[in-house]
Write a protein that binds this DNA or RNA. Structure first.
Length: 270
DNA sequence: AAAACTACCTGAGTGC
DNA sequence: TGCACTCAGGTAGTTT
């Protein structure tokens, strides 16, 4: 589910409710996420949430001398609820705070994770090999161009690879390629510098506008208070098979690339 | 090193 | 109703 804008929306939403708050009690109702929930998360009881940031689609919350590392997988969400609110199905982790509210992790498919790492989080194996943040300045067309030399992989896979750049999932990859007029099947090694400049700009633009609208809700993404995001209404190409392209009116095509749906306009995207 | 493939899991929707 | 099947926002780990 969540790509970068949805994770950013979640982070901004929970931040004012957790920073400086003391953690009173942790409960893990189902530890079987992608990896077992760290036993160490119990050790944060009595401490305060100090700082929260995002790296790619990972949410990192500093507590004591360690960091909570949370990923929402395909179907995860984090919400702020009253401590005494009844648990719903798939509410797996609950962190009660001295405010009377809880930070609650919900994830039907359990592809996400809740881990606790002592020491410098930048050395964590899940973060070590990640590419740059797409909204940072260092991420630009020139960067994509040089990184793509010799890469015989379709451009869509290339930009969805977290080692290339983080945070670009299936929806925003399709959208950015549409705005750039690039066929998703084109090999990364065969795209010009000029087109990469355009692509990098469009990746930034698409992610930024989605963040401004609270992210994209296809079925189950909700923010910290359980509301959906509204970027779905702005999607140009994703999920619109057989509908008319907004630029040229031709029917939108859906193909499968590495097991995932790709939507594109065969006339606008070459 | 890079590309292709596997695996993890539930729920919604479709067709018979 | 029920069963079988497909598809869904992600990505580490394994194999080729």
């Amino acid at each position: 589910m969540p790509e970068l804008p949805e994770v950013e929306t979640t982070l901004r939403g929970i931040k004012p409710h957790i920073i400086g708050r003391k953690i009173s009690e942790i409960s893990v109702r189902n530890k079987n996420l992608r990896w077992p929930v760290s036993k160490r998360v119990y050790s944060i009881a009595g401490s305060k949430f100090n700082h929260i940031k995002r790296r790619g689609k990972y949410i990192l919350i500093d507590v004591n001398d360690g960091t909570l590392l949370i990923h929402l997988g395909m179907s995860g969400s984090l919400r702020i609820v009253e401590c005494d609110q009844e648990f719903r199905k798939h509410d797996h982790v609950d962190i009660k705070m001295d405010s009377g509210k809880s930070l609650r992790y919900h994830d039907p498919r359990r592809f996400g994770c809740v881990l606790f790492h002592l020491g410098n989080i930048n050395n964590h194996k899940l973060l070590k090999h990640l590419g740059p943040e797409p909204l940072d300045e260092e991420f630009c067309g020139e960067f994509l161009y040089s990184k793509s030399r010799g890469r015989n992989v379709p451009i869509k896979q290339f930009i969805m690879n977290a080692q290339t750049v983080v945070g670009v999932g299936n929806i925003y990859a399709c959208e950015a390629l549409f705005f750039s007029g690039i066929n998703p099947k084109r090999l990364a090694s065969k795209i010009s510098r000029e087109r990469y400049n355009k692509l990098a700009e469009n990746i930034k633009m698409v992610l930024q506008s989605s963040i401004e609208m609270g992210g994209t809700t296809l079925r189950d993404f909700v923010n910290e208070v359980g509301e959906p995001g509204y970027f779905k209404q702005s999607l140009m190409i994703y999920g619109r098979e057989d509908e008319q392209c907004n630029k040229c009116s031709k029917a939108i095509t859906r193909i499968i690339q590495t097991g995932r749906s790709t939507f594109y306009c065969s006339s606008c995207q070459r």
